[in-house]
Design a protein around this nucleic acid. Structure first.
Lengths: 123, 123
DNA sequence: GTCTCTAGTAACCGAAAGGCAAGTACGCAC
DNA sequence: GTGCGTACTTGCCTTTCGGTTACTAGAGAC
């Protein structure tokens, strides 16, 4: 009897569902929204102000996707005018910690990248 | 005399060049290529085999972008048939460490995301 | 009655991502 | 001569991304 051995889940395998998770993460808006929410629950308007350059459309769209995947919790108070609050779920928080590390990496190393690009383009 | 205070570099500021660095990182191909190269220097063909689902075009394009920003070093042996090797720079390695953490996060948590998505769509 | 305030949604459109197929260079084995 | 092997490049085409504008509901202030 042949023993079927399942390969361990790997992001390098495109058929593995881990790849889908990676693609959700690998978005600049995700990488900004989650760390922003790590600062505390926020409303739509606050996020719009916190995250420079994001449009209402992309914010709504990304938030919905994050909510669908269980990373963000959306609380609609059902009032008029609307009051909706977003906060991280448990899983969302575990991810936002790592994303925040990446954000800090970008802030600490962008000068070096800028310099490298200049060098490269000068050739 | 008014003292001009420069704001600290922040990825939340769209005019800050750290945002550009973030956008380079926030690509699924970058998040796969750098950790792949962390396993050791590789040639084009080896990367193509290692990273499921990547096309030749995207591999070349992303590698060029990473090289331009100083994260990857490209060594062309100038032979025929061509022999080109890619490896991480110092900065590239510091980034790939964090990216590898994210990859592992995806591999460990994708089941939970899958479940959340199913729950959400069932409503 | 009218204006405001919030968190959207919908339609439209141009830009960019990215897949696929075919072409390139050239030394070597046969 | 023909064909192989490697690392690309180019062109075409479809899909997705993402910006802009206009529209929505309904309570409360005036």
């Amino acid at each position: 009897m042949i023993r079927e051995r399942k390969p361990p889940p790997s992001v390098f395998d495109e058929t593995c569902s881990a790849r889908h998770a990676l693609e959700l993460i690998a978005s600049k808006w995700t990488m900004l929204i989650l760390p922003a929410l790590a600062e505390g629950p926020m409303r739509n308007g606050a996020l719009l102000r916190r995250i420079g350059g994001i449009s209402q459309k992309m914010l709504t769209q990304t938030l919905k996707d994050l909510e669908r995947n269980g990373l963000v919790i959306r609380e609609d108070r059902q009032t008029v005018p609307p009051h909706v609050e977003y906060r991280l779920s448990e899983v969302g928080r575990s991810l936002s910690d790592t994303l925040a590390v990446l954000d800090r990496w970008a802030e600490q190393n962008f000068l070096e990248l800028d310099a490298a690009r200049e060098r490269f383009d000068a050739r």
